[in-house]
């Protein structure tokens, strides 16, 4: 397949590269650009481990084709972790994650929620992370951490 040239801003830095039109953004990030926090859990949009921000909104990088990322702004957990958020600190403090494979996706989904909604209800939190599968935790410790941070922010 003929390669196309695309460019996007990745964590604040403009990147240019050649990609096959059927390459996914997830493949570009992980295999070509060495950004490893988005994970490949299913490669078909079911699990949410590949979550990244595209123009400020979460997307599943395994469902975004390379040309669709052209001209966009992509932010991954790597950028957020340079200056860790209260949410990340709360997750760590509460031992919210176990294996941690779902963590990058969930941190981003929850970050987006708290940006949009300062005081989400428990149901809204559950909704917001329902697209991120976690097999280890039973979700409760994750939900509780998000609740705790939301409470603090509003206070």
């Amino acid at each position: 397949m003929k390669k196309v040239s695309i460019q996007f801003k990745l964590n604040g830095v403009l990147r240019q590269l050649k990609a096959a039109p059927n390459d996914t953004l997830l493949e570009l990030l992980r295999d070509k650009l060495g950004v490893k926090s988005p994970k490949t859990g299913c490669d078909r949009g079911d699990c949410g481990t590949c979550t990244v921000f595209m123009d400020g909104r979460t997307v599943r990088a395994c469902l975004v084709l390379a040309p669709e990322a052209d001209g966009r702004e992509i932010t991954t957990l790597e950028a957020i972790s340079k200056n860790p958020s209260p949410l990340q600190k709360e997750f760590a403090k509460r031992n919210s994650f176990q294996c941690g494979f779902c963590a990058p996706g969930i941190v981003l989904s929850a970050t987006e929620l708290l940006k949009k909604n300062k005081r989400p209800t428990r149901e809204e939190i559950q909704e917001a992370i329902a697209g991120n599968l976690c097999r280890c935790t039973g979700y409760t410790p994750i939900i509780e951490a998000i609740e705790a941070v939301a409470g603090k922010r509003g206070a």
């Binding site: 031992n95 994650f97 941690g100």
Partner: peptide, 14 residues
């Protein structure tokens, strides 16, 4: 607190 917690919430865990 988990000693691997910070690595996991920052995406540093490999």
């Amino acid at each position: 607190e988990r000693i691997d917690g910070w690595e996991k919430v920052t995406g540093a865990a490999k």
